[in-house]
């Protein structure tokens, strides 16, 4: 962090950098930092914000004092009789579901997005191909929700109006109620998420791929490297900073993502995620303190990714 290791080129005076930063910092302070701190206070208070959260404790039950809302946020969904039950209940809680979402959706969107960006570069209809992957992003979810309900619809009559079940019955199978079957439904919802967000990853990664200089690729080809080797040995290392950026952004997006679950299942049948629970506590149960505590947990959950980003930041500058 000492300025000594910083390349000479970055030393442009002490005041100048703040001139570039000031507008952004001011606006972010007013619209994010100040309101957030304002609201975080509520996470230590009862539901009307009139007394400390400690007053909401019930006799004979576990109590974390002013951190009572955090106790609720973290443990309300868990069965804390034994380690085993904690483990089991964790995986069907909103936290477990959010982890599933992060794991499946981030690898799905980044993987498919990167693969598609690379493949699309080699064909003449690149713009069209990318536009089609991007299109779901442009459809607002109010509309997209309608069609996905029709994809997963489970009909009770002979005629299936849901696409997947129509295929299943045409092949002689028995229709599956996708959205009300616990565990299967979360995967089905993640698929909707991948459909929507792959275009995002693809666009950013594609922009980064365009910055890989032609000379480098040509040089590798002249050396006789296969396309596969070029991909892993040349392209991925060059765009790895961007891959980390996309992963970080996607993790954040998934943590905040709530409309898919809200529209498709309303959090029923074991599909609840953290963002959903926050919304429910805030606006359905009017437990602002609890809702805010969940939000703070969300913010804390991102710390490992902040660490990862700082490390990469340092590594990048060390290479200059």
């Amino acid at each position: 962090m000492s300025s000594a290791n910083v390349p000479q080129v970055m030393k442009q005076g002490k005041v100048i950098p703040w001139f570039y930063l000031a507008p952004a910092i001011i606006i972010m302070s007013i619209f994010i930092v100040y309101p957030m701190l304002n609201t975080v206070v509520l996470s230590f208070l009862n539901k009307d914000g009139t007394a400390s959260a400690a007053t909401t404790c019930n006799l004979g039950q576990p109590c974390w004092g002013v951190f009572e809302n955090y106790r609720y946020a973290l443990t309300a969904e868990l069965n804390i009789t034994s380690f085993n039950t904690i483990w089991q209940s964790f995986w069907v809680s909103s936290y477990g579901n959010t982890l599933k979402w992060i794991f499946i959706m981030v690898s799905g969107t980044v993987g498919i997005g990167l693969g598609f960006a690379i493949f699309a570069e080699r064909v003449k209809y690149e713009a069209l191909a990318k536009a089609i992957i991007f299109m779901p992003m442009a459809i607002s979810f109010v509309g997209a929700g309608v069609i996905w309900k029709f994809v997963y619809n489970w009909g009770t009559s002979q005629v299936q109006v849901g696409l997947l079940n129509a295929i299943i019955t045409a092949l002689g199978g028995k229709p599956v109620p996708f959205l009300s079957t616990t565990n299967l439904n979360t995967i089905m919802l993640v698929i909707v998420g991948i459909w929507m967000w792959t275009g995002f990853c693809m666009t950013i990664l594609s922009a980064a791929l365009k910055a890989v200089p032609d000379e480098v690729l040509e040089a590798a080809r002249v050396d006789g490297a296969s396309e596969w080797q070029i991909f892993w040995g040349v392209m991925v290392p060059i765009i790895s900073p961007t891959i980390i950026v996309v992963i970080t952004t996607m993790v954040i997006n998934v943590l905040k993502l709530f409309d898919i679950v809200y529209v498709m299942t309303g959090g029923n049948f074991g599909t609840e995620v953290i963002a959903n629970r926050m919304y429910d506590e805030m606006y359905k149960n009017f437990q602002t303190g609890r809702g805010t505590a969940i939000a703070v947990v969300l913010i804390i959950a991102i710390i490992p990714f902040i660490y990862m980003n700082i490390r990469r930041f340092l590594a990048q500058e060390a290479m200059r």
Partner: peptide, 15 residues
């Protein structure tokens, strides 16, 4: 990086 994860709903009332 941390600010990215702040949910919009937290800031509506103060703003």
């Amino acid at each position: 990086v941390g600010l990215q994860v702040v949910p919009l709903q937290m800031t509506l009332v103060p703003v």
